[in-house]
């Protein structure tokens, strides 16, 4: 009797060990996937350099595949400008919202704003793009006399809305995580709530806030559908906010369908994807440096 119990227990322990290996395999699959992505996209993209010189690709704005011109500078510039402008519009609003949710909002309002930020994330990017296309673009065209209405202004406003939830939720967590004793000490010294927020809470929460901003940038630079619908899709360097231009993502999504796989044209689109991939990986490294781990 006791022997079977011991056997049974041994079996359970053995089972325990194999489950552990299985779970580890699941976890290690993450590393396997990200490495495969870097390798496959990288390999396909780097083939481009057999036909196009790196200098031409990065520092030439002339994109005309039928003429063998593969200069992606205007797309890279478009992506970076749209991202920076989006953060410029979105970060102040999002950060103020985060301070409001963490310190000012009455509990009932906070209970509304939490699901609201989740809803912001859930709205599909094509819907953001469609709203941009049907409201923002005509508005810019008719009231700001902005040419066709397509361009960096429309793009960065839509992106600013799309990155709000990232900035709000991560900054709010960071502000909340500041020890209460710091805040109490400041208030006890006679500082007003605004002074406490500005001089104590925001500086203490700065690593978290910067993480939020970097993640928001990662989201903005990778956003495809909404951008493609309002940027105008013209391969030229934008000289103003109202000029139709293009980004890395919008160019890939428009042209990929028409390009033969393995051609110089197709490969240069993969190279653009590789540039995007490297930018987002760089941002992860930046966040790690900022000292906070959690993403998504």
């Amino acid at each position: 009797m006791s022997a079977t119990i011991i056997d049974h227990h041994r079996l359970k322990l053995m089972y325990d060990r194999y489950v552990r290996y299985l779970l580890f395999a699941c976890a290690f699959l993450m590393t396997f996937i990200i490495l495969s992505i870097v390798i496959f996209v990288g390999q396909q993209g780097l083939v481009t350099f057999t036909e196009v010189s790196p200098g031409d690709f990065f520092f030439n704005a002339k994109w005309d595949p039928s003429e063998g011109q593969f200069g992606a500078m205007s797309f890279i510039a478009g992506s970076l400008l749209a991202t920076l402008l989006a953060v410029g519009f979105g970060a102040p609003l999002g950060l103020t919202g985060a301070v409001f949710m963490a310190k000012i909002a009455p509990p009932w309002l906070r209970e509304i704003m939490r699901p609201a930020t989740d809803l912001y994330v859930a709205i599909p990017s094509v819907v953001y793009g469609f709203i941009g296309l049907t409201i923002m673009v005509p508005f810019i065209r008719n009231y700001l006399h902005g040419n066709t209405g397509f361009g960096l202004l429309a793009t960065s406003i839509i992106l600013a809305v799309m990155i709000l939830p990232t900035i709000i939720s991560i900054s709010e967590d960071a502000i909340r995580a500041v020890p209460g004793s710091l805040e109490e000490a400041s208030l006890a010294l006679g500082a007003t709530r605004w002074q406490t927020v500005r001089r104590v809470l925001l500086p203490a929460a700065m690593p978290g806030i910067l993480t939020a901003i970097v993640l928001a940038m990662a989201r903005a630079v990778g956003e495809t559908m909404a951008v493609q619908m309002v940027i105008g899709n013209t391969p030229q360097l934008a000289k103003s906010l109202f000029m139709p231009t293009s980004t890395l993502t919008s160019e890939i999504v428009i042209e990929m369908g028409n390009t033969p796989f393995g051609s110089a044209w197709g490969n240069s689109l993969f190279l653009m994807a590789l540039v995007l991939l490297l930018i987002s990986l760089l941002m992860i490294v930046a966040i790690r440096r900022l000292g906070r781990g959690s993403v998504v």
């Binding site: 590393t31 990200i34 495969s36 992505i37 996209v41 396909q44 990778g222 999504v253 994807a273 993403v295």
Partner: peptide
């Protein structure tokens, strides 16, 4: 593994599409 998971979460979806 943690770095990989975080990286995977920030890969733009168009890049995942091409992959």
């Amino acid at each position: 593994i943690r770095l990989s998971t975080e990286s995977l979460a920030t890969v733009p979806s168009i890049v995942l599409g091409l992959f």
